[in-house]
Design a protein around this nucleic acid. Structure first.
Lengths: 192, 192, 192, 192
DNA sequence: AATGAATGAGGTTTCATTCAT
DNA sequence: TATGAATGAAACCTCATTCAT
């Protein structure tokens, strides 16, 4: 009967917000951003359409938040050590760990890859995609520089492309794609 | 006084059909399938909306035709030799040639990659994507089998993922992605 | 090589005109006026859409001509004797003959009945429907007057309704509707 | 401050649904199904086009609901006694009552008759038309069987045709059609 | 007389978003 | 905080009609 405390309210808000984002993430991944309607989301989350707009300004803003959130999770879980300098052993761990995260956040990466191909549509998201992609590239660049590769820039972009290619194929056909064999292959190529 | 000859009409139809497909391909690639409207296409092609439906049954059917057409071009230009058995030298040519086609049909491959990520939405297209993907994989599989790789299936999927990853990154950033260096890197990895 | 004579041309025009009307009649009857397109008609008649407009001003005008034509056929074949005065024997013939025409011009009557119910839509047609209906009613009226029925007007409208009801039910289910038994029943009711 | 109660919403929905159905019924009856547009309906009902689709899946579905609703009203009001067996007196009442309903639900019967003539177009509706027509015929059949008519099946179809003919003519020209005189005539024919 | 590519008005339908409660 | 009825712009698509040939 008594009004909720401020703390309780904050908790409610946060839970609801997460519920909406999780639900949207799944639907976007499964059916695509455009084919998912606000009604779909509200129904699956068992809330009203109006409430969704209490938490997010627009459908596009919701997508944006999902991407930002996903990227933050990624970098949070993926904080190497302070300097971002990787030994071969750390690089090995770094790559294997990225495969683990790929599997654990399947829906997120599915959206991530599909958005990568249509940056012009969602320019605001693009900014975030690139922003969070940079340190990832930077780590590779540093690694190849320190290991005296001839063309570190090209090497960094090559391995980023390789990892994304694997990520994409895994997402297209998770049941059959040989993720572990691919990991070993990468270790071999880079002597990790 | 007399109606157009059958030949004239056939030519008109073919030209217009190509115009519509080309225009749509560009817009789909630039803005995505869902964000491109029939009005956009008609305006850019300088025709009426109605005329588009004189040539294609629906927006989805138009996309379908574009995909089929693109895939047929690809396989037509890409016919190795009859048996599909590749020597190392041919493999080298095969890969370099695929990079050439990637550059020449930029828009097509952009759509191709974005559709790969949302197959469930456009099931009819999916059938064609997979159908034309198969021989491509088959060639790799055969190559690795004949060259005594330990796990030819995994190797085939790995290189397919690698090439698609490169294709995707090139499409995201064609100005900066090091396509030639990547090609050399692949030659090195596979001793081509 | 020589140009067609005026007579030949007139014959061609008349044949073509009839072809279009017959084809339209069938399609209108089968699928309804609104659901039948000019393209449908042109295709089935194996002519171009443009040619149809060489013979008829509009789709509605085409319908109008069909109705007028049908009604004229009806009255032509149905000319009693000059005065329109019917003996009981002639009345008997009149009714049985109307059933014959119902069967012989099935498609026409199907359209006729469906238009009866939507007069406001096609006001021009309505005028013709009523115009041709009148003498039909007049004959009945005269008959009942001369045979000393108490309320000849009501009787005339009753039998007209009865015949139309039978016509409608026959058209809905021609295979099973008992047309002959109905005819006998009418003879009995009116002692014909 | 607080959202509407479930009861309030239910009432709103029911009222709006009825409003849409009533409005559509009138327009369909007046101008025909195909000539009535969703815009027409929305305008007359003073709602947005979108709202209509909040209540009905499609234009055809709306028609369907109108037909079903009308038929249900009909059978509800028209429940003779449990067994469906009619005495002569009940038959007399049955027929006179059907004339009352004809007058009270003029618009509905106008649509009903126009649809009877084009069943192939609206197959889903057809199912309902026939389903609700059956018991109506069954009652007649039973009546003629029990009263030892020679050909009860033909008699049932004859009287059904007669009643529909009267219904149709009344609908075409309600101001002048002699409904009462027709009723008396039917009593006479069947000695009711 | 004949063709069919082309038009454009207008139809049905969808859906992100708002707002009274 | 929460609801869902309501909106309206805009999407896809249809089709009677025109017109250059």
């Amino acid at each position: 009967m008594s009004p909720k405390t401020e703390k309780q309210n904050k908790e409610i808000r946060e839970n609801k917000r997460n519920l909406i984002m999780m639900t949207s993430l799944e639907l976007f991944a499964e059916n695509g951003y455009h084919s998912t309607t606000i009604s779909n989301i509200a129904k699956k989350a068992a809330i009203s359409k109006g409430l969704l707009y209490n938490y997010f300004d627009s459908k596009e803003s919701l997508l944006q938040q999902i991407i930002i959130n996903g990227m933050e999770n990624f970098t949070k879980l993926f904080d190497i050590d302070g300097d971002g300098v990787l030994t071969k052993k750390e690089m090995r761990y770094f790559i294997s760990q990225s495969f683990v995260l790929l599997q654990e956040n399947f829906s997120f990466w599915k959206i991530y890859f599909s958005l990568l191909l249509q940056p012009s549509v969602l320019t605001v998201v693009e900014k975030y995609l690139l922003k969070y992609l940079e340190p990832y590239i930077a780590v590779f660049l540093d690694f190849f520089q320190r290991n005296n590769y001839k063309n570190p820039v090209a090497e960094a972009r090559f391995i980023a492309a390789l990892l994304d290619g694997i990520g994409m194929h895994y997402i297209i056909d998770p049941a059959n794609f040989p993720l572990n064999a691919s990991l070993e292959k990468i270790y071999t190529i880079y002597s990790l």
